[in-house]
């Protein structure tokens, strides 16, 4: 009797100790996948013709029709790394890129960005860490502001966004701005949040952590935070021949164009 009890308890404790190993295995595999993705795709790619999408769908009629349709509206695509941050990275990049050629708009954007830290701190964000991201964000914007030659500015933007440290800091700050926007207009946004989460909970769980994917609500808040509009072109397995376009917020004149394929955003150019 006693022996039996002891053997069961040892098998149970073996099971218990094997659980962490399972966890660690899952984590290791996850890291492996992340590494493969980061080795094969740059954070923000070079301009490529729309037709480059054909290689991905060589035997898929539904998608080929849509790529053709897309090619009639847009000239280029710029791919981003599918790491869950793609919307924020693509949006931040495309928005700054278009502003580079419009000095006045850029200065206005710079001014709003300068004030953004105080807004976030007043909303209850931790001053110490917000400052850290804000400083790097402004450092990048300032550097770009001071480059006179447009080509050089574009090159600098591209290099900065492909340096993991800086690129991620730009993403984090846009995430914070988005979270700030959601919390500032809680009453409005709370209607769009599923489950019984508060807007603040939602921000802590879905907006502020890195690698969390973006939904409509993220996009609308991010647009409001940067005071601009986005057109998202949806390309999925739907049977219609053309892609559907959505302007966010509705009725805006979009300045940034993004291609959405399930789970991922890339930048489009007219």
């Amino acid at each position: 009797m006693g022996d039996e009890a002891q053997t069961t308890s040892t098998t149970v404790s073996k099971e218990i100790t094997s659980q962490p190993n399972q966890d660690e295995l899952i984590l290791a595999q996850q890291r492996q996948i992340e590494k493969e993705i980061s080795d094969s795709t740059t954070l923000v790619g070079e301009l490529e013709p729309i037709s480059s999408l054909n290689n991905e769908y060589s035997s898929d009629e539904v998608y080929l029709d849509k790529v053709k349709d897309l090619g009639e509206k847009y000239k280029f695509i710029r791919r981003t790394r599918p790491d869950g941050n793609c919307f924020f990275r693509a949006f931040s990049y495309a928005n700054i890129e278009r502003l580079l050629s419009k000095k006045e708009d850029y200065n206005e954007f710079y001014r709003i960005s300068e004030e953004s830290k105080d807004v976030l701190v007043s909303l209850g964000f931790q001053q110490f860490t917000v400052e850290d991201f804000y400083d790097t964000y402004m450092e990048v914007l300032k550097k770009l502001k001071n480059i006179e030659n447009l080509d050089e500015a574009h090159k600098e933007l591209h290099t900065t966004f492909n340096e993991q440290g800086f690129s991620d800091y730009m993403v984090v700050y846009l995430r914070l701005l988005t979270s700030g926007q959601l919390q500032k207009d809680q009453d409005f946004y709370s209607c769009f949040i599923e489950g019984d989460r508060t807007v603040t909970d939602f921000c802590h769980q879905e907006v502020e952590p890195m690698y969390k994917e973006s939904d409509h609500i993220h996009i609308i808040a991010a647009c409001a935070a940067l005071n601009t509009g986005v057109r998202v072109i949806y390309m999925d397995r739907g049977t219609e021949k053309s892609c559907t376009a959505h302007d966010l917020p509705e009725g805006c004149s979009p300045t940034v164009h993004l291609l959405y394929r399930p789970g991922h955003y890339d930048i489009l150019y007219l």
Partner: peptide
């Protein structure tokens, strides 16, 4: 480290 999905960059060592 064991729950990387819930960590936020705005948290710190403190």
């Amino acid at each position: 480290g064991h729950h990387p999905e819930s960590w936020q960059p705005s948290w710190s060592i403190r």
